[in-house]
Design a protein around this nucleic acid. Structure first.
Length: 849
DNA sequence: GCACGCCTCCAGGAG
DNA sequence: GTCTCCTGGAGGCGTGCC
């Protein structure tokens, strides 16, 4: 008999991490999920305080009397809330109900939010429960005598000391933010974020299913047999189940010796055993389990006659979870753009398990010839286990980086960890803001109340169809520049939000006397009487990251584990802060407020423009700049310091030295440059040669050229390098002309961002190729299409369908020319003369000679 | 009929 | 389903020329 990883809490619980919350529709109560790190179990706790769902109305209880006849209405209660938009108290009626569906159900004639104008009726019940009880997911709690109690680990002295230093640094509080309220927030954040993150016990699993050629099995029907199930646990479990099928070769066992393999005669027995393993772990990890593995297993189990009570899974509208444990679908987590860019620095380009694994952990899926169904049983086992192993490794590399990040973001967003892993930044920030509203008894505004503010934009975007103007990009100074300093403003937009007190309720506030506190370049003004909620929340997180965690993560007196935590916290803050401005300008964000986003970028442009003027006035040449960065040509330390000090006192922003380049090459193009740092490291920005869709042979040539450039130290060496570069390019050009380049290396790799049929306005090249591919296999959005350019008809063909003799070499030469001109033109080199083509006729001559 | 210029769509990237 | 700014390739369409 296996012991379950889960148990119901009766009366007591040792300190455990609050990880998730749900609603139990049978018991009609909120249920909390705790992870207890010593027993490594999930503990369930059902509310015993009688908390009930509710929403608010501005009608008084008398006017709402007609509701009291309903059985699902418990009571109507007078309440007073603070209305931030109008800066005054407001009387409301709290409508308390017995079931969340009474408020937000789909029955249009019954659900209260459909028949009345209501406030705070679009919040999930378990979220309400968390907010009302000031429960913070990711915090430790204990239970004594049936009562929930906060639990805090003590923080090392040197960490507390660093915090004090931050609070007494007066310079960090330029602006009108009230020091006391602001500093209380900082302390509260630090105490929460400094709590240790426990090791989370987990298992990953993966299933394989029989399938027809090119068809993806349907998880809803689950009519095909499950042939293998593999598991990989953080505790060292390595196990794979394989179904013996008639006519299948056994093959030879090439599994690593520590992997346990079991063969089954009956699929249903294999599934039952799989359920035993899954219930034995508090956390279950999958790759695409929401859409495939979990529903397939669930529906297949049902189809094979396993009773519902014996299936430990729960299917929801667009996700899947466990009755007791927590399910994290890594496909959902890694698809989050904020994670992809800010936490994992764009090391993977698409969201397939293989790309993510190659980019982050240098692992890949096992390749096989032919069909999966043709593999021997041992081969299948090996393939299947490898997927589970990679999936687990994606959560454990870098000392459990991903798990730790999720826990820390959970703390900031006050949101269950399974929701954090599935939802975007706008949802995280929504949750954080709702929590804060409840904490201070502020009424959360309805969308319509905020819409009035967003109706009028006062700036015009540079790009057509955009709502407001964004960051400023300085025209680069063309040429090669030696000894270049890159300065950047630390968290510019969050700094602006803090210093200018920006928030939905403070921008264009109701007070007449605030109207003279204007935002440059707009007709907006900002409140001078009250601190903005956004300014406090984002501002305090910004100060923590910039002044505290960045240095804590390098503090030599701390041990590795501690430093690790602070690095993770710093990264989590980076993710949140980078998104915080953007959501203010996103309609899907419930507190969307266009003037806040507009004011933020307007002040950003003002700040960088004024700083450029300041640089000029102290004699520094500014070569380029983009939004929050400045490229300075050979400034002295003193010059830099004077600008830094000026920016701090004038605007309250931190201007930091980001990089020193030995030299930088600019063309006339914005967002396009190449820089070589003092240690020879090459930075390439925006150039086509680097882009992921560029054919490998051009990208390889591009990187070889960068290799040459990284060696260059002086202007003389630079001239010498030109010869080498020329030789290299003409060598590749000759190969191309002679058709010696393998087809694979000629392929453009472009992602299809919607279903092929949805391209109606124009048919791009990769879609033309995809349509040819569709004849043999299914094409979904998110797939990467590999195609080559050919001479005939549509001009493109999928690589696997093309022949070497139909390649359009001239097209490739054109692409090479434009790609390398991006660097060559500003180095005084000409592509055509490099490859030995005559000036006038250029490419044509080169080709037909 | 076809070269061209102009605009739009699309993808990928910087910040 | 955070945002705007920028580049480059190709498709689509109208215009004017032969």
């Amino acid at each position: 008999m296996q012991s379950s990883a889960v148990s119901e809490i009766t009366n007591t619980m040792p300190p455990a991490l609050l990880v998730s919350a749900t609603y139990d529709s049978q018991k009609k109560s909120a249920v909390l999920k705790f992870y207890e790190p010593i027993s490594q179990k999930v503990l369930l706790w059902t509310d015993n305080t009688g908390h009930k769902p509710y929403c608010y109305s501005k009608l008084n209880p008398e006017e709402l009397k007609f509701l009291s006849e309903r059985k699902d209405i418990i009571k109507l209660e007078k309440a007073s809330k603070q209305d931030l938009l109008r800066d005054r108290a407001v009387d409301v009626t709290k409508i308390v109900v017995s079931d969340p569906l009474a408020i937000g159900g789909t029955q249009t004639d019954k659900s209260i939010r459909n028949i009345l104008e209501t406030w705070e009726s679009d919040i999930k019940y378990y979220e309400n429960y968390l907010y009302d009880n000031s429960l913070i997911v990711g915090k430790y709690y204990a239970i004594e005598n049936g009562k929930l109690k906060e639990f805090s680990y003590s923080i090392p002295d040197e960490v507390q000391l660093a915090l004090k230093g931050l609070l007494y640094d007066k310079l960090t509080n330029v602006g009108i933010i009230d020091t006391k309220e602001f500093q209380d927030h900082i302390i509260e954040w630090a105490n929460l974020l400094n709590q240790p993150v426990p090791k989370i016990k987990r298992v990953s699993f993966d299933i394989e299913v029989q399938s027809e050629t090119g068809r993806i099995p349907d998880a809803k029907i689950a009519e095909k047999t499950i042939t293998a199930i593999s598991f990989c646990g953080s505790d060292g479990l390595k196990e794979v189940f394989v179904l013996k099928l008639a006519g299948k070769q056994l093959g030879t066992n090439e599994l690593e010796p520590d992997i346990k393999i079991s063969f089954y005669d009956k699929e249903v027995e294999m599934i039952r055993d799989a359920f035993k393993i899954l219930t034995n772990y508090p956390f279950v990890i999958t790759f695409n389990g929401d859409d495939f593995d979990m529903p397939y297993l669930y529906n297949r189990a049902e189809r094979l006659g396993i009773e519902l009570k014996d299936i430990p899974l729960i299917m929801m509208r667009d996700s899947a979870t466990l009755k007791h444990g927590v399910h994290i679908d890594l496909y959902r987590a890694f698809s989050n753009r904020s994670f992809q860019i800010y936490a994992f620095s764009h090391k993977y380009n698409d969201f397939s398990l293989n790309s993510i694994a190659e980019g982050l952990i240098e692992e890949s899926k096992i390749e096989y010839e032919g069909e999966l169904d043709d593999l021997s049983l041992y081969e299948l086992a090996n393939y299947c286990f490898n997927d589970a192993r990679i999936t687990e490794k994606l959560t454990s590399f870098n000392n459990d980086l991903l798990m730790n990040l999720l826990v820390v973001i959970t703390r900031i967003g006050r949101m269950p960890i399974d929701d954090i892993s599935r939802m975007g930044v706008s949802q995280w920030i929504r949750s954080l803001f709702y929590y804060e509203h409840r904490k201070h008894n502020y009424l959360i505004p309805r969308r319509e109340e905020l819409e009035q503010k967003s109706a009028t934009a006062s700036t015009e975007a540079v790009i057509k169809d955009k709502k407001y103007r964004g960051g400023l990009v300085v025209e680069p100074t063309e040429g090669i520049h030696f000894n270049v300093f890159v300065m950047d403003f630390a968290s510019l937009y969050p700094s602006i939000i803090k210093v200018r007190n920006l928030s939905y309720e403070t921008v264009r506030c109701t007070h007449d006397e605030c109207k003279k506190n204007t935002i440059p370049g707009t007709n907006h003004w900002v409140c001078t009487k009250k601190n903005g909620l956004t300014a406090i929340l984002i501002g305090s997180l910004r100060d923590l990251r910039v002044n505290y965690y960045k240095s804590l993560s390098k503090n030599p007196s701390l041990n590795e584990d501690q430093k690790q935590l602070y690095t993770v916290v710093s990264q989590a803050l980076k993710v949140i802060l980078n998104a915080s401005y953007g959501v203010m300008g996103a309609e899907i964000f419930p507190l969307y407020c266009l003037p806040v986003a507009e004011a933020t970028t307007a002040v950003g442009r003002y700040t960088i423009l004024e700083t450029i003027e300041k640089c000029k006035s102290v004699g520094i040449q500014v070569l380029y700049g983009d939004t929050d960065s400045l490229f300075l040509k050979g400034p002295t330390r003193d010059q830099v310091q004077s600008v830094v000090n000026w920016a701090k006192t004038e605007f309250g922003v931190d201007l930091d030295l980001d990089k020193e380049y030995r030299y930088v090459v600019f063309s006339t193009r914005k967002k396009n440059y190449l820089g070589v740092q003092k240690d020879g490291k090459v930075d390439v920005k925006g150039l086509t040669g680097k882009k992921s869709h560029t054919p490998p042979f051009i990208r390889n040539l591009f990187y070889e050229i960068l290799g040459i450039l990284s060696e260059v130290k002086t202007e003389e060496e630079f001239s010498q390098s030109k010869q080498k570069i020329g030789d290299m390019i003409s060598q590749y050009a000759k190969k191309l002309k002679a058709k010696q380049i393998p087809l694979q290396d000629l392929a453009f790799n472009v992602m299809i961002s919607k279903a092929p049929s949805e391209y109606v306005k124009t048919i791009p090249q990769h879609i033309r190729a995809a349509k040819l591919l569709e004849q043999t296999r299914e094409i979904k959005k998110g797939d990467i299409i590999s195609y080559v350019k050919i001479l005939n008809k549509p001009g493109v063909k999928p690589v696997e369908m093309a022949r070497p003799d139909e390649i359009d070499s001239a097209k490739y030469m054109e692409f090479m020319e434009s790609t390398f001109d991006q660097i060559l033109s500003s180095m005084d080199l000409d592509f055509n003369s490099l490859i030995g083509a005559p000036k006038q006729t250029g490419l044509d001559q080169f080709f037909w000679n």
